[in-house]
Amino acid sequence: MYINEIVVYIGEILVAIGVFCDLAASIGMLRFPNFYVRLHAATVGTIGGAFVPLIGIALIALGAEWLGTYRFFLAGASIITAIIIIILAPVGSHVLARATHRARLVKVEPKVVDHLEEDIKKKEGDENA
């Protein structure tokens, strides 16, 4: 049967996509100008660079018969790690961006409109008046 080969090839394609996203995200993380723009690179790096290859690794491990019975353990733990990452990574970057904006650590530089800052200013004005 060729089912093992097919599963392993699909997994390798997913890992290759993950490596490409990882390289693109690291270059973007180094080249982008400030923190709020770097959040975009971080999203590419976590979802594209960690979630997708972990699913691919689970598929490779399901097709890899030379690893013995423990390959099912490897596949299950990879899928659990992928689910943990897709839940926790957006929450972490969102919390970090919110704290940075509220503490005014980084200036919002390429800015068209910033409703959150206007709301905070209006609230402070109401409290002072």
Binding site: G45, P53, A61, L74, G92, S93
Partner: peptide, 27 residues
């Protein structure tokens, strides 16, 4: 933020290393 992205990518990389070293316990 850089440590965050680095660590999630390293988690994927460690899963790849456990296939490379042929010891699935490392996952």
């Amino acid at each position: 933020l850089a440590i965050d992205a680095l660590s999630f990518d390293i988690a994927a990389f460690l899963a790849l290393l456990s296939i490379l070293y042929r010891s699935p316990i490392l996952i």
